[in-house]
Amino acid sequence: MSWLTVAKKDFKGARRSKSLWAAAVLLGLVAVVLAYGNQAFRQTEVEAVQGLFRTLTQILAVLLPIIALTATYMAIAGEREGGGIKFLLSLPNTRRDVFTGKLLSRLAIVASGVVFMYIAASSVSLTKHGVFPLGVIAGTLLLTILYGSVFVSIAVAVSAAAASRSRAIANALASYFVLVILYVFPDIQVKTVVQGIHTSLLGMESNPDLYNAVQYTSPFLAYQKAINLVVPNRLEQQLFRDSATNLDGDEPMWATDVDLNLPVYLTDEFSLVILAFWLVVPLLVGFWAFKRTDLE
């Protein structure tokens, strides 16, 4: 169980980090401001609070990866650069213990931050609107922790594979760009690029399902689709409306009661598979790299 002592020490150290507390306070403030400003305009109090938590997830979709990556990218790279790894590995710890311990500690840290934010948002909402829509709050909380964990996993992997701080920063930035930024702005879409290659270079017939499937590999989109699973229909966000089976349809952006007829790999449920992939695969790759590298 020596991963546990690695995790405990790491968590203890992180708990005393001023910058982590600053980040937590900032998150709490964002939550409070959002919750306080949230009005039940032409809707019930419950609907208003449900809407608030969906808005929160939309903000966190962009923000949480940054928090998770910055809180984690130095987890192992920092020990390597500072030489702390020499103490860790002179004691009866294996590299697996160090990797596992660091991962669990950082997962706990990021999850605590999310929970903190949720406590802030839900208590302000409860005071202001007198309601606590448990289903939406618990559902989005769990998915948000899962989403944060995906980026912790990526950052631990990046950190384990990097020999220095600068390398770890570069890799963390690159993963944020490739996995989030590329999907945020509608003008520079991955699927447009794929489409261009597919139709122009390869001369194939246009296949929106394929492009959407490629687009859907992003944890950023997967998270948003996953949120659809736990919020009421009216709050669902419809993506991939141009998919083959719906080409003729002229669906509204916010479909209220019509579920798009999508292939299984584009459904909301499939998002969990994608998130699970991003949770596990980076860890395997990162650990493989860490296990065989020379630590100096």
């Binding site: 002592t5 203890k12 150290g13 708990r15 500072g82 030489g83 702390g84 002179s90 004691l91």
Partner: peptide, 28 residues
């Protein structure tokens, strides 16, 4: 074994005693 490595840093937010305690715990 006991190791005094070269080129290390104590860069966690831990006190001297906590480092000792952590080592004792890790070594059972």
């Amino acid at each position: 074994i006991g190791v005094l490595p070269e080129g290390y840093e104590f860069d966690d937010h831990l006190t001297g005693r906590e480092y000792i305690e952590w080592t004792i715990e890790t070594k059972a």
